[in-house]
Design a protein around this nucleic acid. Structure first.
Length: 114
DNA sequence: CATCTGACACTAT
DNA sequence: TATAGTGCCAGAT
């Protein structure tokens, strides 16, 4: 799985970005956004700067966030304040086909919520 | 095998 | 819109 995630991340072309959730989903693990972060942190050789939080937010510490932002701008990605225009830069992964048990996440949730 | 952890996502304030 | 709290999954320890 870690490999799948890493591979997915590697698919993001230069000048493009993606989000943890999107990567996780594309890799076939819809709810494992957190693992994406772990993979990024452990696996070397990944375009980590192209992975952002939901909505294009940077979840890194200021120093690293600055670094990431710099790198991305170098690749041609423009920032809108503290965020990135995902509308334009979010990379669209090919159909994963592995659409894993998306179960009734919503159902389960609503059951708990109300 | 049991617990802790993580660069998150999502909802409610 | 920004901040805080809660849920989640699988890898590491």
């Amino acid at each position: 799985m870690a490999a799948a995630i890493a591979a997915t991340i590697r698919k993001v072309p230069r000048g493009r970005v993606s989000t943890y959730g999107a990567v996780a989903k594309a890799a076939g693990y819809p709810r494992c956004s957190r693992h994406v972060s772990k993979v990024l942190n452990q696996v070397c050789g990944l375009p980590w700067q192209r992975i952002l939080g939901s909505g294009g937010r940077i979840s890194l510490r200021d120093e690293f966030a600055m670094e990431q932002r710099f790198l991305l701008e170098t690749e041609g990605v423009r920032f809108r304040g503290r965020r990135v225009d995902l509308r334009e830069y979010e990379h669209r992964f090919a159909t994963p086909k592995r659409q894993r048990a998306r179960r009734s996440a919503a159902a389960r949730k609503s059951q708990i919520r109300k």
